[in-house]
Design a protein around this nucleic acid. Structure first.
Length: 448
DNA sequence: TCTGGGGTCCTAGGACCC
DNA sequence: TCTGGGGTCCTAGGACCC
């Protein structure tokens, strides 16, 4: 918590819908719903006119169609248009201060203390009024709500208090007066589950929360969460404004218009998702060691399966191979509603034989075969034919697949996709006994 | 024609190490 | 031959955010 209200939060109002209304004047003043328009679509953004009828973000579009009147526009999103408008706004914010933290396409924090500004209440009020006016002109009529306070949480709460096109400055010293009457849901990190737990002990407002002891709170909602809420209820928040954060994961997922059962279709979808993820990784110059498959079944039950490789991957083919193996081990009977593929454990892509180092480490913790690891082959250029996920067969060990490969060595997991690391075998990359194999027929639907 | 898609962070258990 | 605890990595799931 700072001594002056120097953190600003800007939230663009009903952003996607506002851009549509700007670009299509016939939509102005009418209810507009942007989101998935197919049978399984949900609402991304409802204009304020549509909100009057109950339309909300995350609501199934089918429900929004039921409750909104004839004449409501239902539009698919145009992300490129939103991105262009967002860029205009973020550029304006960076003129206020070099410390701008975009939270999403329509939201950002600005550390005004890093700019040259009068940080009195009157000063920041004038600054925000001027920003809002210029922003509306620069974007062609998109408006934003601004909160300014002594911390991120107060700035964010301020921007929520007066929507749309609002401005709230929370002066230093008045934080608790603002905070305590608000419902606990106003605090970042309090969602439906936490609110319900708190309600069960008669805690409804931030003021109620303030009266809980740290021990009671952490017992109720967990260590980290409890400690965080304890501080937020006291306006104790010193989180800095961060300009760029490194991505920790990259993923793509798709809900199908109809549940899929056809193995060939499932494989094709995995390949397409892996292609999206891999190309994004390659474009950003990163790669990651953990591949995660997400599956949502016909009955909406959702599960994830992941596998950490000894070396990072960014190649769509390799990502797809691993994801297909993970899919092979899940129950697909009844059909799948959604598939997702992700890569995490990201690191900047580095040239060189990372795998050799990974094997050194793995050998320290892995029960390796009794038979000796083949001696290092003669120095010289080695052709690495193996890639993670590739199916192989070995006369001594049977069927397996490549877990990791380097210049000289290849590590294979034998006996199927869930073989524990203790059963890996490290072989010479040029071991003549090790042969590529046709993939097993994993696509046959499995039960249980 | 119920329930998207992109993320982050936390928890908890098991394996394994010291 | 009786009993530990801390730390890290991996996996799976859940809550939450926009």
């Amino acid at each position: 918590m700072r001594r002056e209200p120097s953190i600003m939060h800007l939230d663009l109002d009903a952003f996607f819908a506002a851009v549509e209304q700007r670009d299509k004047p016939s939509l102005r003043g009418r209810p507009v719903v942007v989101g998935g328009t197919g049978g399984r679509g949900v609402v991304s953004t409802a204009s304020y006119e549509a909100r009057a009828f109950g339309a909300r973000s995350a609501m199934p579009t089918a429900e929004a169609r039921r409750i909104c009147p004839p004449g409501t526009a239902f539009l698919g999103p145009r992300f490129a248009a939103y991105k262009r408008t967002s860029d205009v706004v973020m550029t304006m914010l960076r003129e206020l201060s070099p410390l701008v933290e975009p939270v999403s396409i329509d939201e950002a924090y600005v550390d005004l203390a890093a700019g040259d500004h009068d940080l009195s209440v009157a000063g920041v009020t004038a600054l925000a009024e001027d920003l809002k006016a210029r922003l509306a002109v620069a974007t062609g009529g998109v408006t934003g709500s601004v909160g300014i306070g002594t911390s991120k949480s107060l700035a964010k709460i301020g921007s929520e208090l007066d929507k749309p096109d609002g401005l709230t400055v929370v002066p230093a010293g008045s934080e608790l007066d603002v905070l305590h009457p608000l419902p606990v849901r106003s605090l970042g990190g309090v969602g439906p589950a936490t609110a319900e737990r708190l309600a069960q002990v008669k805690v409804k407002t931030v003021g109620d929360l303030h009266r809980m002891t740290l021990v009671d709170l952490t017992t109720l909602v967990g260590q980290a969460h409890g400690a965080g809420l304890y501080r937020l209820a006291r306006a104790d928040d010193d989180r800095p404004v961060i300009t760029d954060r490194e991505a920790k994961s990259v993923s793509a997922e798709e809900t199908f218009a109809r549940d899929l059962t056809d193995p060939a279709r499932l494989t094709a979808e995995i390949d397409a998702l892996a292609e999206r993820v891999g190309s994004r990784l390659q474009r950003s110059g990163t790669s990651g060691r953990t591949v995660t498959l997400k599956v949502r079944r016909y009955d909406f039950t959702t599960l994830t399966r992941s596998l950490t490789l000894p070396q990072p991957v960014d190649d769509p083919r390799q990502i797809a191979e691993v994801a297909r193996r993970l899919l092979a081990a899940v129950d697909r009977s009844g059909g799948l509603r959604l598939l997702g593929v992700g890569v995490s454990g990201l690191s900047p892509y580095a040239q060189g034989d990372l795998f050799a180092e990974a094997v050194e480490q793995a050998e320290e913790t892995t029960e390796l075969p009794a038979e000796p690891v083949p001696a290092d082959p003669a120095p010289g250029p080695a052709v690495v034919a193996w890639y993670p996920g590739q199916d192989v067969v070995h006369p001594d060990h049977g069927a397996g697949w490549v877990w990791g490969s380097g210049l000289n060595r290849v590590t294979v997991r034998f006996e199927g996709p869930r073989t524990p690391p203790g059963r890996v075998r490290t072989l010479a990359a040029d071991d003549p006994d090790l042969q590529p194999a046709d993939p097993p027929d994993w696509t046959t639907p499995v039960g249980g």
